[in-house]
Amino acid sequence: MDFKEKAVVMTAADMNRVMARMASQIVENNPDLSNIILVGIHRRGVPLAERLANKIKEMDSVAVATGTLDITLYRDDLSTVAEQPVVNSTQLPANITGKTIILVDDVLYTGRTVRAALDELIDFGRPHRVQLAVLVDRGWRELPIQADYIGKYVNTTEHEIIKVMLPEYDEDERVIVVETK
């Protein structure tokens, strides 16, 4: 598939500012930081969760626990996809029961990834609360799911794709809108 770049949504500096704001909102909403776990959803949610943890550490000198979640085995479209997606590892601290889990992902779109993530979390224990942090909310929800912390809300059409580029996976660091040709 060919992509045409349409617009830059955020530069690296914008992303940094936005992450700092999200981190401070998380601190504000969760007085007991020792009870929260930032859980990144594979793939790009994983480095974003680490960054939020770093920001919180800079601000409050508290090392917040982090984890990773791979939702592949919980997808609702597995039986209809032609090729089986590669399964990444899920790594959560020993016991999540009673914790506040903050799920972190790059883009919130249909909400189906978050639905799968919630199902998977429940198999690991019974968290006290689950919150959701996303860098970009692009609308087009298909399930009643909303984020608690949003980096930026972006109006999109159905044919557009939001690409979050992170140095961990890409050659660049920015957020762009591309259109499928």
């Binding site: 791979d70 085995l73 919980y74 597995l78 039986s79 590669v86 399964v87 990444n88 590892s89 899920t90 790594q91 199902d119 998977e120 198999d123 690991f124 224990g125």
Partner: peptide, 25 residues
């Protein structure tokens, strides 16, 4: 590919709930 995928499933076998909904139905 099979060995890498199996690596992930090893983790599932050490979880409290050793079951995922992947092949439901």
């Amino acid at each position: 590919l099979i060995l890498d995928t199996a690596e992930t499933f090893r983790d599932i076998n050490s979880r409290r709930i050793k079951k995922v909904p992947t092949l439901r139905g």
